[in-house]
Design a protein around this nucleic acid. Structure first.
Lengths: 196, 196
DNA sequence: CCTACCGATCGGTAGG
DNA sequence: CCTACCGATCGGTAGG
């Protein structure tokens, strides 16, 4: 019965979600069909529904997995003894590495979360808002203690979070510059511009 | 016969494309249906096809209108007498203002251009690549003449182009900060970090 | 896990 | 510009 390929101890559901993540990233959530997904996994479309409840459930798994990863890292960094600049740099580096290590997941969550339906849509929307507020808070503390240039904190958050998406173009074009070097360049440009 | 609302001397096709631009931005190109569009315009779905040839033709108009705007501005700036930093700042400001003044258009082109089919897909892809190379060229000249910090030029382009997309979140949340002030903050953070 | 199938909706056309 | 409609495809279910 176990026709779904089952490498590295993954459950069938995990295999489906993994394949879907890649498919959603490549074609977009709406344009990727369950029949495409079934083919990628190696079963008939109807068989997918023995492991998942709906197409949207897959999107939910992807979006909240990403949201949880960022929230947990933010917990750690806020509890750390790093300076304000150090905390910001640490979060920036985490975002960059998430783009490298979990590219498909991060891109799908960022681009397709609007296709969630309530209550997941509101929940995700609110988490996103709260997360940005936390990051702005870290920056504001840096401004208060003189580490960071006095600029609008929410604007810095906007710039940082979106700048990291540039890695998509890099990922796609396979430029000559290496991942490690790209990370250092991004940190250099974005963090150095913040110092007061 | 002219049932399509025709404010400010727009042709029917222009009215359709304008409504479609908003709809595509709100729901995504794939998720927005021609029946939705027909309703927004105030006609039956079949009637749209007297003015346009296909759903994709609308997407083509949107994408290449945006691409042309950026290319033309780049022509002007490259031909100007501005310093290298001045040229980069000028292009950055143009991107920011395009986000403010033509938000739907810019977002759709950026998010949905992959749904074009060949030869438009390859054409757009190539224009995008060439445009980024031109921007990187401006920055590289700035590095050569000592105006700009010595960092990887393509990385700076990636950061600048994507950072500007942060205006989407601002647009959506209607934060307290004004458009003009957001522009100055972005320029301050992104351009000041470049100076050598 | 598959065969067989459903109702809904899609982009688009014929003909007036 | 509309009515009427097409074939294709969608997400998902029944039943085994």
């Amino acid at each position: 019965m176990a026709k779904i390929k089952n490498k590295h101890n993954a459950t069938k559901k995990e295999v489906i979600v993994e394949a879907a993540t890649r498919l959603f990233r490549e074609r977009g959530f709406k344009a990727a069909s369950m029949r495409d997904l079934a083919e990628a996994v190696g079963v008939e479309a109807a068989s997918l529904y023995n492991h998942i409840q709906s197409k949207e459930e897959i999107l939910q798994e992807i979006c909240f997995k990403v949201a949880n990863a960022f929230n947990e890292q933010c917990d750690k960094v806020e509890a750390s003894e790093l300076s304000s600049i150090g905390k910001i740099e640490s979060m920036l580096r985490f975002h960059i590495r998430m783009m490298f290590d979990h590219f498909d997941m991060v891109m799908v969550a960022d681009r397709d979360w609007k296709h969630l339906s309530d209550p997941f849509l509101s929940n995700y929307h609110e988490q996103r808002r709260a997360y940005r507020k936390r990051l702005a808070g870290i920056i504001e503390r840096g401004i208060d203690n003189g580490e960071v240039k006095d600029v609008d904190a929410p604007t810095i958050v906007l710039i940082m979070l979106h700048a990291v998406n540039g890695i998509e173009s890099w990922h796609r074009s396979k430029e000559k510059i290496g991942a490690r070097q790209l990370e250092e360049n991004m940190v250099l440009i974005l963090i150095d511009g913040l110092r007061s």
